[in-house]
Design a binder for these strands. Sequence first.
DNA 1: CGGTAAGTTGACGTGCGTCAAGTCTCGTGG
DNA 2: CCACGAGACTTGACGCACGTCAACTTACCG
Lengths: 239, 239
Amino acid sequence: MIERHLLKLRLRDVISAEEEAALRGTIVDTVVHAANRTIARAGESLQHSTLLLEGLIGRYKDLRGGSRQITHLHVPGDFADLHGFTLKRLDHSLLALSPCVVARASHSRLQEITERLPHLTRMMWFSTNVDAAIHREWEVSLGRRSAIQRAAHLFCELQARMAVVGLAEPDSYALPISQAELAECLGLTPVHVNRVLRDLRERELLEFRSGQVLMRDVQALKRLAEFDPDYLYLQPLPL
Amino acid sequence: MIERHLLKLRLRDVISAEEEAALRGTIVDTVVHAANRTIARAGESLQHSTLLLEGLIGRYKDLRGGSRQITHLHVPGDFADLHGFTLKRLDHSLLALSPCVVARASHSRLQEITERLPHLTRMMWFSTNVDAAIHREWEVSLGRRSAIQRAAHLFCELQARMAVVGLAEPDSYALPISQAELAECLGLTPVHVNRVLRDLRERELLEFRSGQVLMRDVQALKRLAEFDPDYLYLQPLPL
DNA sequence: CGGTAAGTTGACGTGCGTCAAGTCTCGTGG
DNA sequence: CCACGAGACTTGACGCACGTCAACTTACCG
């Protein structure tokens, strides 16, 4: 159930059997969400954190005027709102971008972990800090990169993150998301995203069709995006 | 020394005398940095976290081509890189935007806190999660708000955060930063920031001159920015 | 009083937004 | 099997917010 999450944690540091059991013990149930459903709304107070098992989840914030910005994409194995454990209410909403299966981790059991298992607590803290590092990289994209670089960077990031949990080939992966939703990640309009995708296709860098990403020239794509995976913290370093 | 940091924490929850002492005990020394000096460079491994006592610090990332994006501004009382405790190396650099006084908190003593003081550990975790919430709001600004809204939003955010640590009046505060650095926060060029500031001035919303912010019409400014301080988590909620 | 960095302004260019009219895809019901 | 509708995608024409370039002013400091 939480195997993919453990894969990610163990990339960083050793997780003992006791820690693994404690983590498994936080899960109280499993829920299925249909595509395009809001899973949690900004401002709600929380009793659980959402661990994504299957599908794609986006964190987003609405603006007056009806537009919205997706601030983070979650792949299977990610906690979508582990930060909700200390924040108690969310400043953003959660959206199922595709049909999703999620496990729900009880905050009271997470609290017990923080009382008894300092090392595992540091690992959970670490997870939320990596999320923040991803936010920073998205700020750089939104603030300083051109539309095509932004798109290329996002595709590179998702390949790297999906690969960790066994969901990506070196040059392809499933990304069940519409161009309009991509636009909400990239701070662009759907029309311009469409043009950027055509551009990437015509340059023979990448194709994105019917929820499938095919990287035709991984090296050139990473060069265009200035992609450096260091900010994902995928190397071992004991806590 | 760490009074301003305690002010922020105590806005959220009670800090016991033992916890306060432990926090004070993490500080090993105090360092002064001149303006425009890089305090820590992306990629370096860390033994300390930086608590800002006086001045302004920015987190930034460099891009090929020489431009850079500032992803977060720190005011006195903030840890600029508490996340460095679990990340072990930074994905961004730290820049003293004005002359700064910082206290350095030893990671080994922070580690002891995580072993002995679960509640204080949750408070520190909370702090880094608020930083992430601020990153999200900046993503919204960079992705979806116009230049003038972005600027207005940043000025509102900094007023709220400075006020918490006693460094802002309801309508004014010191912000020792150049227009070029503002541009690096806002994802704009210095030239355009200059025009936006003139626009804000001519609309009689806000003046920014010689490092001083004067909000001439706070209500209208917040309306323009769509500023809602919920994402700063300034209300009490026990952990 | 001269040098340097910060701020200001105007003329002009362009990347992305807007608007509008398609086409393509696919699920549903006749 | 086809008709239909709805949503996703595509494309072209045009507009504008912000970028670029360059000249100038102001503030500050030695």
